[in-house]
Amino acid sequence: MTRRRMIAISAAAAGMALLPPHGKAAQGAVTWQGEAMGAQASLVIHHPDRAMAQRLTNDVVAEVRRLERIFSLYRDDSDLTHLNRQRFLIAPPRELVDILQQCRDVRMLTGGAFDPTVQPLWDAYRRHFSTPGASEAGPSAQVVRECLRRVGLDWVASSPDRIELSVPGAALTLNGIAQGYVTDRVVDLLKAGGIESSLVDMGESHAIGSAPGDRPWRVGVSDPLDSTRILKVLEVEDRAVATSSPFGFRFDEAGIFSHIIDPRSGATPQRHASVTVVAGQAALADALSTAFNLMDADAITAAVHGNADVEVHILSHEGGWTRIGA
């Protein structure tokens, strides 16, 4: 029940040409293929110094692996898994404390529509629809109410010394923000290594500088029902783009219950076909695109009011687009 997404990073130092991951590599280019954050990954670094390209490649792969061991919900040895299992962590990783603070900021901005403590509800839907003969109406109202008692970041205490889940049965998921956070970290590594032009795509996209020819990068927004069909193209420079859709994963065959669960009600409303957010950081774009799927256009407008850093593109179920902000 994970979303499998292709990760592709193509990075170039100043003056070097960018090539597609499977194209002919320029002199000094280093390539890597494997798996990262639960998806197939490819990485191409173009640099006049091949040794530098290899070092950057190694650094990116090592950093992604390190962050997986902190944030992954699907690894038994991750810090997040340990936290959910024992309800506390002593001397937690700095990145885990940082991402929880970002979660608090987005939760406040969205009126509670984004909350990483929603995991008990996700587990309840999974258990229900994994049971033979389960009701098509979903988990009972009583089950949802019981889960909601464990939901809420107010129940999570976090500091550089300790993170604690104060309610029995509480659990965190960072699936709505972690890929954006990792994307931002990869961008930081590439910039520190002298990369001035790159489009980093780790499920969420982040453009470094401009594309070859001093043009904006072009990021396609796919049809949520057909990933091969591009419905909209956004032009970005030094900006991140994230898209979330209730069609990304649905628990039931009828498609009524999606993976985007409202932490305030426990329901899985499908207000929009997809929501795409453009922002300065991929973590923010990632989290907002998730939360905005649970909010109407007026609430989204209020959330981004006065924030020139955020631009929102909403795809309706009828196929129309609404743009908010920027």
Rank of each mutant, 00 (worst) to 15 (best):
R150P: 10
H82C: 04
R75A: 13
P20K: 13
M108C: 12
W155L: 08
L165D: 12
A29V: 04
C103V: 02
R150V: 05
D76M: 09
R69N: 05
M202I: 00
H22C: 01
A171N: 11
I314Y: 13
L19D: 10
F88G: 01
D298N: 13
V143A: 13
D161W: 15
T276H: 13
T276G: 11
G176S: 08
W321S: 09
G266Q: 09
A302M: 13
A299V: 08
G23T: 03
S166Y: 14
E164R: 14
R107L: 10
I70Y: 07
K191I: 01
T173W: 13
P120C: 06
R3V: 01
L174C: 03
E253G: 11
D161V: 04
F129A: 03
V44F: 12
R50N: 12
A302F: 15
G280Y: 08
A282Q: 02
E164G: 04
R145A: 07
R69V: 00
A13T: 00
L89K: 03
A285C: 08
P92S: 06
R271H: 12
R55Y: 07
A14S: 07
M1V: 05
H305A: 05
A11R: 01
T243Y: 06
N58C: 04
Q33L: 09
A124K: 14
A291R: 11
I163P: 15
L18C: 07
L234Q: 08
A299P: 14
L294V: 05
P212K: 13
A53F: 14
N58R: 12
T57H: 09
L43N: 00
V221Q: 12
D79R: 08
T290P: 15
R150I: 05
I45L: 15
A12K: 05
G320R: 14
A11N: 00
A14I: 01
P93W: 08
D154N: 12
V64Q: 12
G23A: 02
G280C: 13
R185Y: 00
D252L: 04
E235G: 09
V97N: 15
T2C: 12
S274I: 08
G280F: 14
